[in-house]
Simulated scan of single mutants.
Amino acid sequence: MKNPLIIALDFSTKQEVQTFLNKFEHERLFVKVGMELFYKEGTSILSFLKEQEHQIFLDLKLHDIPNTVRQGMRSLASYGVDLVNVHALGGTQMMQAAIEGLDAGTPSGIKRPQCIAVTQLTSTSDAMLHNEQLVLQPMDNVVVHYASLAKKSGLDGVVCSTLEVPRIRTKLGDTFLTVTPGIRLETDSVDDQMRVATPIVAKENGSSAIVVGRSITRATNPLKVYKKMLAQWNEESVTS
């Protein structure tokens, strides 16, 4: 991925996004648009971000019957975003349908958006996995299994925590994307995340990209924190 640090735009309005992005001078960013922002602003926020030449991860986590996901992805493919996602729990037929929809909806001559599957949310603890989802396998086994299904279905990668990346790399290879949220600096609060890591640990474990939200968006100087996190990531690439 061109930019390994994806900033989660955890804002409600386009005005808030504009105010935030103005602090980044002329940086070309990779940003994540989630449900809160997309449901409020619709496709206009995507157009605005594309005009600013930012890469876009449209994080809507589709999870429905295969035909619905196929048609949904066909529509999303026309927006010109770079990355979209589904829930791996939807199964192989649904994930295959997502790729079919993206292929059908991407304009001729344009590269289709990459598609990754959410394995288990980084807010999910082992206790939640066992007691609420009634999944008795260890978290690592569940995530690697879902990742294997995603690759079998033709997806480009998965969303997982940094903890599961080494096993996914071993089983599925280096070209399969591992996008890892739950990234914090050593001094940050973990908030509602359970499986977190620093950029250095994420890079050491083999993450393809990291997703950072509140550590940057709530910072007094977001650009400074952004550059600090990139420096941590790039330091590992130099010394390894």
Results as ranks from 00 to 15, higher is better:
residue 58 L to R: 09
residue 58 L to P: 09
residue 59 D to N: 06
residue 59 D to W: 05
residue 59 D to K: 06
residue 61 K to E: 01
residue 62 L to I: 11
residue 62 L to W: 04
residue 66 P to C: 03
residue 66 P to H: 06
residue 66 P to Q: 07
residue 67 N to C: 04
residue 67 N to P: 01
residue 67 N to F: 08
residue 68 T to N: 10
residue 69 V to A: 04
residue 69 V to L: 03
residue 70 R to P: 05
residue 70 R to I: 04
residue 71 Q to Y: 15
residue 72 G to N: 05
residue 72 G to L: 01
residue 73 M to N: 06
residue 73 M to F: 15
residue 73 M to I: 04
residue 73 M to C: 14
residue 73 M to A: 03
residue 74 R to G: 14
residue 75 S to V: 14
residue 77 A to W: 00
residue 77 A to T: 00
residue 77 A to F: 00
residue 77 A to D: 02
residue 78 S to R: 13
residue 79 Y to N: 11
residue 79 Y to G: 07
residue 83 L to A: 05
residue 86 V to Q: 00
residue 86 V to C: 11
residue 86 V to R: 00
residue 87 H to Q: 03
residue 88 A to W: 05
residue 88 A to V: 07
residue 88 A to H: 06
residue 89 L to Y: 10
residue 90 G to M: 04
residue 90 G to Q: 01
residue 91 G to L: 08
residue 93 Q to N: 13
residue 94 M to S: 11
residue 94 M to A: 06
residue 94 M to N: 10
residue 95 M to E: 03
residue 95 M to C: 03
residue 95 M to R: 02
residue 96 Q to N: 13
residue 97 A to S: 12
residue 97 A to H: 06
residue 97 A to L: 00
residue 98 A to P: 05
residue 98 A to G: 12
residue 99 I to T: 15
residue 100 E to V: 11
residue 101 G to H: 01
residue 102 L to P: 08
residue 102 L to I: 09
residue 103 D to K: 12
residue 103 D to H: 09
residue 103 D to Y: 13
residue 105 G to F: 04
residue 106 T to Q: 00
residue 107 P to T: 10
residue 107 P to I: 10
residue 107 P to M: 03
residue 110 I to E: 13
residue 111 K to C: 12
residue 111 K to S: 15
residue 112 R to P: 09
residue 113 P to R: 07
residue 113 P to H: 08
residue 114 Q to R: 14
residue 115 C to K: 00
residue 115 C to G: 01
residue 115 C to R: 02
residue 115 C to V: 00
residue 117 A to F: 04
residue 118 V to R: 04
residue 118 V to A: 05
residue 118 V to M: 08
residue 120 Q to H: 13
residue 120 Q to W: 07
residue 122 T to F: 09
residue 122 T to P: 06
residue 123 S to L: 00
residue 124 T to D: 08
residue 127 A to W: 12
residue 128 M to K: 07
residue 128 M to D: 13
residue 130 H to K: 15
residue 131 N to G: 11
residue 131 N to M: 12
residue 132 E to W: 15
residue 132 E to D: 15
residue 132 E to Q: 15
residue 132 E to H: 14
residue 133 Q to S: 14
residue 134 L to S: 14
